[in-house]
């Protein structure tokens, strides 16, 4: 039985979680600050980014230049990105000052850092596919940095067809995967206790 791949996978994944840990309806009493809201605000912005991005894909790459509705959706896509980064940075600062990597939560920090970096890369490819002057400028400027590192040999910023496919498929998939991983780690480990919380209320086992 235990040699079955399915059993092993179940033990390594599903059985690691109690339903109460996956969707808890309570939190330790120290979870009482607005700073805790910024992770969820970042996720909400990401959800808006994905929804508005999907709306843009349904009508094609240059739709938004000729349609008022399209331009409005494009605006929502841009501004949700701006807010996404604002919320993510506040969340990051909060987690830093809470030293939230304590107690086997280092992996949570690392996945969070990769979320940030993947977001920067995904955002960058978005700027390349606006089909306007901004895209032309960014593509011609950024090529030099990428070429100097050898990346330009397989990612050509001036190949708009390549940039749009990266932006709407591979990079969002990678980002979403890391975000889900990050959230799973948060749920599995719980919210980090306050610094110096050792002596009280049966915190330690």
């Amino acid at each position: 039985m235990s040699s079955m791949w399915t059993t092993k996978l179940r033990k390594a994944t599903v059985e690691k979680f109690e339903p109460q840990d996956v969707l808890p309806d309570d939190q330790p009493s120290y979870v009482a600050s607005w700073i805790y809201v910024f992770g969820v605000l970042t996720l909400s912005s990401l959800a808006i980014i994905i929804i508005t991005g999907l709306v843009l894909t349904t009508r094609g790459a240059i739709w938004w230049h000729s349609s008022n509705v399209g331009h409005f959706v494009n605006s929502m896509h841009l501004w949700s990105v701006e807010l996404f980064f604002v919320f993510m940075v506040v969340h990051l600062w909060g987690k830093f000052w809470m030293a939230a990597w304590r107690g086997r939560r280092f992996a949570t920090w690392v996945t969070g850092a990769f979320c940030f970096l993947a977001s920067v890369a995904t955002g960058f490819t978005g700027y390349l596919i606006q089909w306007d002057f901004d895209s032309q400028w960014i593509a011609t400027q950024a090529k030099d940095g990428l070429n100097s590192a050898g990346i330009g040999s397989f990612f050509n910023t001036l190949n708009t067809g390549q940039a749009i496919l990266l932006h709407v498929s591979l990079l969002p998939l990678v980002l979403t995967f890391i975000v889900i991983w990050h959230v799973i780690l948060v749920r599995r480990n719980g919210v980090v206790p306050p610094l110096d919380a050792k002596e009280i209320a049966g915190g330690a086992e």
Partner: peptide, 30 residues
């Protein structure tokens, strides 16, 4: 590593509605 950081929190808890928080945050951001 401090014990309390590693252990599952067994101290006092408060009700906290994560799903409601997300839905409200989503609407506000939207």
């Amino acid at each position: 590593e401090r014990n309390v950081d590693l252990a599952k929190w067994s101290g006092p808890k408060r009700p906290y509605d994560l799903v409601k928080e997300f839905v409200i945050a989503f609407l506000v951001v939207g």
